[in-house]
Design a protein around this nucleic acid. Structure first.
Lengths: 193, 193, 193, 193
DNA sequence: CTCTAATCGAGACGGTACGTCGCGTCTTACG
DNA sequence: CGTAAGACGCGACGTACCGTCTCGATTAGAG
């Protein structure tokens, strides 16, 4: 009689149960909405379910905790970001991928402002680092830095830059930011010391 | 009928009340001790006061919350770090100040490992940024970046680098790290775009 | 987002939620048990919930404070007492109702000894006065005293008499006490000044 | 090295130390002042000492607790009341002593309103009972009631009557109240059943 | 189109930590 | 060197939120 956590598993042969999908999507977007208003640590499960029009119990049927929901949300969003600008970690097409990334973020300012504020930021950093590790796993050490460190610094600079950008009252154009990102992330990474 | 919060004020010429100093110092070092064991968000006020041999209520006589104590601790430690390597933001003596900073951190590995782990890290970043703003307030704009952004990136890289360093099982020598720091923090800052 | 205080409302067609009834009844009788041991003001909420096998928080879900629980308990008990001897304030059947009341109290000595001891007594007096006001509201002023005063004196004498009775190591028989009560409560009330 | 509670003991050969007397009197009247404003149980020691312009520690030099101060205050006031109308318990001069008592209370309405409100009332009752026991100790059993019970009922009726009187917005004249008191306290007491 | 099993809503509950309040003790710095 | 100021330990309070648990009532989707 273990916990029944309906992870969109094909119940009875078909695709996911519509109710399950509706609940999970509702919770995800409810959290994102609330993140625009207050920091993650100040959001309660009760608020999320109220906003999502979902029963309190239902929350825990899908996510084991508030943090788990945040993780899920972040994983999805980072995946989208990565898909929109994959080669940035490759440094193959330097400025281009930076610009792609900045454009994507620019198109979702509210969302990324929320994700980079308060308690969500460390998780974003962590997940981004995790994904970047996968990407750079093949290509290695054409630099004098250990791969781990290189990735960590790259992620830190990217996030700090984006965070600063989104905080500006009169935001800079994306290409200007992409330029800085290239200077500070890609160039140091490909430099042969 | 206001809350009496004994802020080591020199009452009539002498130094503060010994008991006040003892309580506050005890709480500060108790928190630091516990930070070596578990993350800040998992430490309870009860644990802190037990470890400090101080009454539960007394905690709140001195700090309005767990976070306030952390702030106080961080402020002190960052001040010490800054004092040990002030001119790093000035880039006057580039590699020298980097080395000083790394040496200082190296001499307090446990403390800084604790400060850069878990929930404490964002506060460290914030306070460090605050102090760096003061330092660089006069000298400005010999770079193509806004001062705020320059500072934010510098702090982010420094902390990420230190955090990585302290996480290594077989730590690198301080001068090696200082070299990287110089490359990634000072050099980009003084670059003529 | 209002506080949910589960006031035995028929949820979903049935009678009150069983859990609610169990919690409230448990708390009520736990308080009564403890009142036999020590005075109300020396009883802590923690003791009550421990004795009732109920979570600490649950207490406040049902009663806003220790005093509110006492009020509830007293209201119930006084109601029972009144039901057992209603016409005493009417003086219709003078000695009879006095005897009924004394008999009832005699059958619940422990309970009433507890209620008339320590901090509970004033609340008992207050509630009894409140109920007596309802009873005597219609019939009035066949006496030379204002109704309020008459009620207050009657309640005071009744409670003092009962309190004394229950304190005696070798208690008097109920009919003897009822006789005194009749002399001191009913007779003065129906006296033509 | 036991607790030094300076009970107006002749320090240095004279009568009570003036400072001691001043502190104790100040605390007493401070408590009485505050009793006019809120109930005893809602008054804090801090408020008393602030109002009395006395150090916090000083309070406990003179009274072991808030309750002890109340006891002292009540003892004094009841003594005064008794002195003003001693023979009421004797029933020697029936109506006369009742009138004396009511007159005295009437001359100190605020004080007695305070004493008969809230947490102070039970203590007043207790102390009054104690004093009445002394008075009636000699003369006994010319009534069919046990002396203890007779006293208790008398005190209860007196206090209830006074309490009601002082609560009235348009108070009755003292002689009217004295008459009721005579009817309800003295007459039943001297009745030969 | 119906049946059956999984999901859902509602909310009471136990538990942990928090921060507050007041009491009564005890240290400390100062006159 | 005594004494007033006030820091301190203690214990209870009431709050907030978490994650668990029943219990019916729906509702999706397989046959």
């Amino acid at each position: 009689m273990e916990r029944t956590i309906p992870k969109i598993k094909k119940s009875r042969g078909g695709l996911g149960d519509l109710r399950v999908r509706r609940s999970q999507d509702g919770l995800r977007s409810a959290l994102l909405d609330l993140l625009n208003v207050r920091a993650f640590e100040d959001i309660t499960v009760r608020e999320i379910v109220d906003h999502a029009d979902v029963g309190y119990t239902t929350f825990f049927r899908h996510f084991s905790s508030k943090e788990a929901l945040l993780d899920a949300v972040i994983m999805v969003e980072i995946q989208r970001l990565t898909d929109a600008s994959l080669p940035i970690y490759e440094a193959a097409d330097g400025p281009g991928s930076c610009l792609a990334l900045c454009d994507y973020v620019n198109d979702h300012r509210a969302l990324w402002a929320a994700l980079l504020t308060g308690g969500a930021a460390p998780k974003v950093r962590e997940e981004m680092l995790r994904q970047s590790r996968n990407v750079t796993s093949t290509r290695a050490a054409n630099t004098h830095l250990p791969m781990d460190l290189g990735n960590a610094l790259a992620v830190a600079v990217i996030l700090e830059l984006l965070s600063w950008w989104l905080r500006q009252p009169l935001p800079w154009p994306a290409d200007r930011v992409a330029e800085i990102m290239y200077d500070r992330v890609i160039k140091p990474a490909i430099a042969i010391s």
